[in-house]
Structures are given as structure tokens and as C-alpha cells.
Design a binder for these strands. Structure first.
Lengths: 341, 341
DNA sequence: ACCAAAATAGTTATCGTTAACATAATGACG
DNA sequence: CGTCATTATGTTAACGATAACTATTTTGGT
């Protein structure tokens, strides 16, 4: 077996030379459908394999001015909800040989801006942004760009382009309605500080709005620490709550993780759920289904957001410049479980 | 404001033309450090901004034959452990303006192979594979490739290149030792079926090996369904276990999620943990810290795997062809909590 | 056997940036 | 005031695949 001492990169022309055909013919063999003799193609592909040829997408992309990249920014892939979205988006786009360019903003608009600049240099064919909060410069960059821009996980008032999202506000306010319908009146909201978690802010706003609509006290807002908040903060938050408002009979948490933490703390303090305190979460994480008692929650269909975004992008890439910005509103579902009466 | 009806892409030469300099000078202005007059650079950058220029990484990559891509395959970003690895890897590489190309194998070696082919076409500068199980062709492709290959999350016997991982086997076997040390003898293992979860297989092997070493019965192996298994399967698995081996006094689960499901089911059935049954998890997920009782578990330092892999890659890219394949072994930590005596 | 249509292959120039080399301007110094 | 660094810029030719065009064969219908 001949091992070339200096591994010069094999290119299409080399394969062509070895078979007495032109580079163009080799290119056709790799494209799949173009008019090329089946025998020629087979020979080319075989020779390519033999020479250890690897197609160079960089050169192809430059010439075709199509990259097959789709850029996506997420606050954090570590969040189970966002990762479900990323997974289903990736899954569907992967099938069409589109490549995800993933970037984590760490909940920081300045970092988002830096990343967007980097991502745009790669000439993606679409950009997906999780959330509606962007720096001025990010907005400017993205309105000038000639590719589809999709904001997901929110319903921004001034969208940059297309939207696939749901109303954090309305869904949380529906949850309040349910609590009130079942007789609870002294409700509290437990969530992260407002700094850089726009979804938390919206959910809190939904809580306040619904409480005021019912003529109830909307001031029991417990800060659980800076976003992203989790179980630990939920447990600590419950202590804060009961210190300050011991007669609370319903607790709405910004996420299932927080609610689970609160639940665990209830158990330790001997607070009965839901008899003494009804507790709800948000996001329909697996944990809420399995804990005791199981959590009433909102299913935002995180995976569906990903797959519908993928469908939208695939459509837009097929039929370019297809008129106005689309707005896909996902309906979150209220899931009733035993943590509320 | 003049809106060009046909937005022809602005390139370096256009900026140069507008300022009476050559494209090369513009290129130098964007490179940062090269010998170029400060005033000239400022003018160029300003003009670039004015014209809405976006640097074309595709062309640059082709010319330089460096892409700044790092490819990584993961069974599923949805798994909290893998996503912690991805996050810390991304975080560190992002800072150096390396771009992650993420691909989900869905625990399927055939899909992994397909994705590797796609990824290699993008000319990444390094490839990271989660796990040691690869198809024959994948192995062939990756041994011929001229870039660093890193396998993580395992210690493969025949590594393809570098390794950053830990021993699932040894760590699980250490957990058995602990159970035995604290007086438990009738131990069972609860995990997914073996088909395509090599890490689960290793953990099970560690269980069996340790049990045999102690001269104990190693046959209580409960299948919890096909990987990836979660809380739901854990709960169902506990029922299976107690039906078959009611006198079991220690249960080792393949993950914290499974252990939590089992724990919840114990509570429903009135089984006291740890008095009647000691339970342990694996992976140190947040849930194990907060549930009641908190779970004894193994912390595999998932985030650390990501950051050490990032460091390794950065080193290798700086000092290319730096001799032999490196093997970084991470020491998992045994975390004792109240679910075991 | 003849010709149009279809199938197959080749040529050339290009996508936008940048390495490598060439050139021009500036200054330092004996 | 010439000589040699030093700094700043320009010129040319790639990187590798492929669109657009042209050229050559096959095919099939009459």
C-alpha cells in the first residue's frame, strides 16, 4: 500500500486526471442528478473513494453562493426547553443537509451581538434568534441582511422578520384564571430577577395583569435570584415567600424547576400541597410529571417550536422573497395535575 | 437615503474603490495586526460600515484553507449531561472565534456516519465525537483525516486519536464497593437495554465486575426500556425489580433521572429509602441534589470534559502535529447523599 | 441513410479573499 | 547626501468547485 509522504489534498481535478475526464465531469458525478453517464459516475465515485477524496464544501459554497448554514442563537443549550427546540430544529434541517451553526448568548445581548457578527460572516441562509431582546446594532445588522430572520420563543411587538412563538403573558394569565376558578385568592409569583430574562418578565406581567383583572392583590412577587433560576432558587424562594406572606394559598412559579424546588421545600416545612398551598410550574419539564405531587404546568411545545421553525425555513428557502413576514403562534397547553386542586 | 434596488453584494474591492485603495489594503485592515497605517484602517472600517459590508468567511476560508470550524457529534443535546459538555466546549471555543458545528446522532451509529461525512466536507479543524462506538466506515474516514480527532465521555480501547473521558466502568464499580462497605449485599442494577447506549453498558459491566469481585449475586439486572431512559422508565423499573427480587436492599441506577423515577415510585409503594432500599444514581444531575432524600451519585464533571476538550483542541491547533495521541482521564467523584446509608 | 433532439463531456471564467512578491515612500545615520 | 531599514501599499495568482456556454456523441424517428 502506497502511503504518500506529503499528503497533498486530493481535488476533483485529480480524480478526473486519474480517469481521463475533466474536473467538470467529476463535479457532475457528485451533484447527483445532472446529465452524466451512470458508468462514468460509478467509476468516478469509486476512484474518489480510493484516493480518499473529501468534497470541499468551502469552495463549492463560494462558487454557488449557498452555504447550507442556518445560524441559531440560544440563551443556553443547557436549558431543557431550549435544547428540545434546538434538537427538533436540528433534526429536521439535518435531514436536508443543512448545517446548524449554534451559538450560546448566555442571556447577554452584548454577547449575542458579537456572535451575530461572527455568524453573519459565515453567510448563513437563515438566522434564528431565541427571544426578542436585541441590542440596537443587532437589530440594524439583521434588518439589512438579505436572508430570512426568525425570532422564536416570544411574540415580539416589533419583530425583525418572521416569528414562531407563543405568548408567555397570556398563558401565565390563563394559569392565574384557573387558580382563581378553583377558589384561590392570595396568589404569589416566584421568578428570577428581571434583568435579562425577557420570558420571565412576560410571565410575571401575565400574572400581574390577570390578578388585577380579578381585582386581587398582585404585589406578591418573589425574586428568586438572577436568571436562569433553578431548583435551588425555588427552595430558597419558598422560604422567602412564607416569611413575608404566610397566608398565601397559591404559588405560580416561573418554571417547573423552580416549582419543584419550592415543592421540596414545602415537604420539608410540612406545608401540604395542594391543600395548604397550590403550586404550579411552567414549561412541562419531565420532572413535573414524575414528582409528588405532579405539577400543574404549561406545555409550551418547545420541540414543536423547533420543527415548525425548520419547516418555515425550508419553505422560505424554496420560495425566496415570498412576501410578508410570517407569524406562527403556538398555543401553549394548560396541564392540570395534582399540585393544584 | 439611496436604496439600491438590486442589492449587489459589497466586497472588499468596492470599499477599496470608494477610498482609492486596493482590495489588499482592505483585507489588511480587517486582519487586525498587519502593517497598515492606522488612519487608513480607520477610514476603511468606517466605509465598510457605511456600505453595510459583511466579511465573507467562505472566501477567506477557501484561500487560507482554514475554516475555524470544530465539528462535534453528540447522541442528543437534550441530555443535560451532554449539553453541559457542549456548553462549556462552545463557551471556550466561541471566545477564540471558533465555530461549533453541532450534530445529533440520536444514539445511532449509521446516522453518526452520515453526519461525519457531511461534517468533514466543511473542512473542520478538529472533530469531537461523544462516545467510542463507531461504524467501520466512520473509523476509516477518521483515521485518514489530517486533523485532530477527540473522543470524549469514554475511554475507548482502540482510540481513533485523542481522548478526554472517564471510566464508566470503574466509577460504577466504586459505587458498588460503597454499597457493600455499608452493609448492603443484595444489589440490583437498573438501566436501559444495551443496544445503543455504550455508556450504560459500561456502567452495567462495572456493576457486574464489582459484584463478582465481592462474591455476590450479580444477576439482578433490570432492563428499563430502550435508551435513552428517563424518569418514567425508572418508576416502571422499580416495580419490575420488586416483583422479581423483593428482598433487594440496594439499587444502582444508570442515571440520576432513572434513580429519581425509582425514588418516586418507592414513595408511592411505601418503600423507605434508604432504610429498606438504598438507591444511587449516576451523573450528578440537579434533580438529585434537590429531591427527597437527595441522591448518592457519581459526578462525571460533564462541563469539565467540554472545557478540557476545548483546551486540548486549542493547544493542538497552535502546535500542529505535536506527536502522540493524548489521553486525558477525568476522575469522576462519588457524591454521598442520604439516599444511601 | 439522414437529421433533429437528447445525452454526455469539455472549456473558460468566476465566486471573494489573501499569500507571496514587488514597489514606493519615509526616515535614520554616518 | 547617498545607503539601507522600515513602513505602507499595490499586483498577480491562486484556493477548489461549478455556471454558462460550446462541442461532441448517441439515439430514434422517418
Amino acid at each position: 500500500m502506497k502511503t504518500p509522504s506529503v499528503k497533498r489534498k486530493v481535488k476533483m481535478a485529480d480524480i478526473g486526471a486519474a480517469l481521463g475526464v475533466s474536473a467538470m465531469t467529476v463535479s457532475r458525478a457528485f451533484k447527483g442528478d445532472a446529465g452524466i453517464n451512470a458508468r462514468t459516475r460509478a467509476a468516478i465515485l469509486a476512484k474518489a473513494d480510493e484516493l480518499g477524496y473529501v468534497f470541499d464544501a468551502t469552495a463549492s459554497n463560494l462558487r454557488k453562493s449557498r452555504t447550507g448554514f442556518v445560524a441559531i442563537t440560544v440563551p443556553s443549550v443547557e436549558n431543557a426547553n431550549f435544547s428540545a427546540t434546538v434538537r427538533d430544529l436540528t433534526k429536521r434541517l439535518q435531514k436536508k443537509n443543512l448545517q446548524i451553526l449554534l451559538a450560546n448568548t448566555e442571556y447577554d445581548p452584548a454577547e449575542e451581538e458579537r456572535l451575530i457578527v461572527q455568524l453573519l460572516r459565515r453567510k448563513p441562509e437563515a438566522v434564528v434568534l431565541t427571544g426578542a431582546q436585541h441590542s440596537q446594532r443587532t437589530r440594524a445588522l439583521l434588518t439589512n441582511v438579505q436572508i430570512p430572520v426568525v425570532e422564536i420563543w416570544d411574540l415580539p411587538e416589533q419583530p425583525l422578520g418572521h416569528v414562531v412563538g407563543f405568548s408567555n403573558r397570556t398563558s401565565m394569565s390563563g394559569l392565574v384564571d384557573h387558580m382563581v376558578r378553583t377558589g384561590r385568592r392570595r396568589l404569589a409569583f416566584l421568578g428570577g430577577e428581571t434583568a435579562n430574562d425577557p420570558r420571565g418578565v412576560q410571565r410575571r406581567a401575565g400574572f400581574v395583569e390577570a390578578m388585577e383583572r380579578h381585582g386581587l392583590d398582585a404585589t406578591r412577587l418573589i425574586p428568586a435570584g438572577s436568571a436562569p433560576v433553578g431548583m435551588t432558587e425555588g427552595a430558597a424562594g419558598l422560604d422567602l415567600l412564607l416569611d413575608q406572606y404566610p397566608d398565601t394559598d397559591g404559588l405560580l412559579c416561573v418554571s417547573d424547576l423552580v416549582a419543584f424546588g419550592a415543592l421540596a421545600q414545602c415537604k420539608r416545612r410540612g406545608v401540604r400541597v395542594p391543600e395548604d398551598l397550590a403550586v404550579s410550574g411552567y414549561g412541562n419539564y419531565e420532572i413535573g410529571r414524575v414528582c409528588e405531587p405532579p405539577l400543574t404546568t404549561i406545555d409550551v411545545h418547545a420541540g414543536q417550536i423547533g420543527s415548525r421553525t425548520a419547516d418555515l425555513i425550508l419553505d422560505l428557502l424554496d420560495a425566496p422573497a415570498e412576501g410578508a413576514a410570517q407569524r406562527h403562534v403556538i398555543q401553549p397547553d394548560l396541564i392540570l395535575r395534582r399540585s393544584t386542586p
